[in-house]
C-alpha cells in the first residue's frame, strides 16, 4: 500500500456502473514524513475518509475492487482502505 493525503474529490455522473454510490477522492501520495511524493491520483473511498486525512491506499485491482465494491471484477485500480492515526518510524 501507499500513504496519501486526501486533498479533494471528483463528481462524475456518467461512469462505469460499478462506481455508482462510490465516493471518488483525490489523494496526494506522501512519504512517511508527510512530504508529497509524485502526482495525485483518484481513489475510491471505502472508509469514509475526509479531506485532509492521511490514508492507506491499495493500488491493485483485485483488492481495490473488493474493498470498494465488495467483490472483484470492477475497473478500479486504487481504493482507500484505512485512515491513518499515527506513523512511527526510524528514518
Amino acid at each position: 500500500m501507499i500513504l496519501a493525503r486526501v486533498i479533494g474529490n471528483v463528481v462524475a455522473t456518467q461512469k462505469n456502473e460499478r462506481y455508482h454510490g462510490a465516493r471518488i477522492m483525490i489523494v496526494q501520495p506522501i512519504n512517511l514524513d508527510g512530504s508529497d511524493r509524485g502526482d495525485p491520483i483518484l481513489a475510491l473511498d471505502a472508509v469514509d475518509a475526509g479531506e485532509g486525512d492521511r490514508v492507506l491506499v491499495v493500488q491493485e485491482g483485485w483488492s481495490a475492487s473488493v474493498a470498494a465494491t465488495g467483490r472483484p471484477g470492477a475497473a478500479i485500480d486504487a481504493t482507500i482502505v484505512g485512515v491513518v492515526d499515527t506513523i512511527d518510524y526510524e528514518s
Binding site: 486533498i7 471528483v10 455522473t13 475492487s65 475497473a75 478500479i76
Partner: peptide, 30 residues
C-alpha cells in the same frame, strides 16, 4: 483505469485493454 482491471468493463467480452476510460468528470474539487 490501468492494468488488467481496464478490461473488466467489457466482460464477458475479453477486450485487450490496459487503459480504459471509466468515467466522465463533471466537477473536480480540490
Amino acid at each position: 483505469c490501468r492494468g488488467r482491471e481496464a478490461s473488466y468493463p467489457f466482460l464477458p467480452d475479453v477486450v485487450p485493454s490496459d487503459c480504459t476510460i471509466v468515467g466522465i468528470v463533471d466537477e473536480v474539487h480540490v
